[in-house]
Amino acid sequence: MAHIVVENLVKTFEVAERQAGMWGAVRGLVKRTHRTVQALDGVSFELQAGELVGYIGPNGAGKSTTVKTLAGILVPTSGRCEVLGRVPWKERTAHVKQLGVVFGQRTQLWWDLPVVESLELLRDIYGVTAVRYKAMLAELTERLSLGDLLDTPVRQLSLGQRMRCDLAASLLHEPPILFLDEPTIGLDAVSKLAVREFVQHLNRERGVTVILTTHDMDDIEALCTRVIVIGGGRILSDGTLDALRDRVTREHWLILDLEDETLELEDPDAEILRRDGRRVTLRFDPARVPTALLISRLTARYPVRDLFVQNPPIEEIIARLYREQAA
């Protein structure tokens, strides 16, 4: 069953423009000019129950406009949007009961209070029964190792601890759909892994549908089977990570550690991307030259200590996709 249906979503904003300089500021007192910004320009996609989708794009691409529309806090200019069969902005309270939303940049916990007090208030806000609350709290406490944190005031928590508590706060009412906005931003490596592991568990074991917006491509690679890339208010690509790679480039990277750092290296079918002392990164098209052939050719001609082949990192893929789009 499709959990989320978005069809031809369009959103335009009016933005006031400010003139530069002192004279501009004075003139602005009298007259102001407006300019229209097309935040979404016909966005369509469908999400099935239990999908974990990465929704990525540069700042201002329309990411948060989409998420806000799905969350029911923004009414689009035109287009259709249904979440669990409801139009989000038409039945706000019924709709948001089905949602969990986590913003990595800000907390929904009460700053001066112990975490557990925030959770209890959220219990009453969402009307969670005492029995369910107890069960969920126990489960979340165990999964996210919240034990000692519950009685700590939020302002004393580290960022990683706070994020774990925020995740718990968004899930007390057992929403079937979860929006994660930059959930790992600013976290240390250990906390990042903990958050990813937990999200994976939610998705796999509990079947929660997850939309993840992030700039951290490691999040995407670790979690998402499907990636939607948005730029300039349009969807640039929608599919598996591999399909995205195939679309943008088929090239592979060959990384060589040479014996000698002064050695000059050359090959007609490969291009040197960068050189770091002994380490050389080459890119090549496996359709033009089979990987095995290139390796044997290079190892025969040059003294190579070590080598490995990899796909270009996802950042690279995305960056190229944007560049292509802009061109």
Partner: peptide, 15 residues
């Protein structure tokens, strides 16, 4: 001071 003046002048409705 000039920069602050410009910021404060932007708020015409406030004025």
């Amino acid at each position: 001071i000039g920069a602050r003046f410009r910021v404060l002048l932007q708020y015409r409705a406030a004025a």
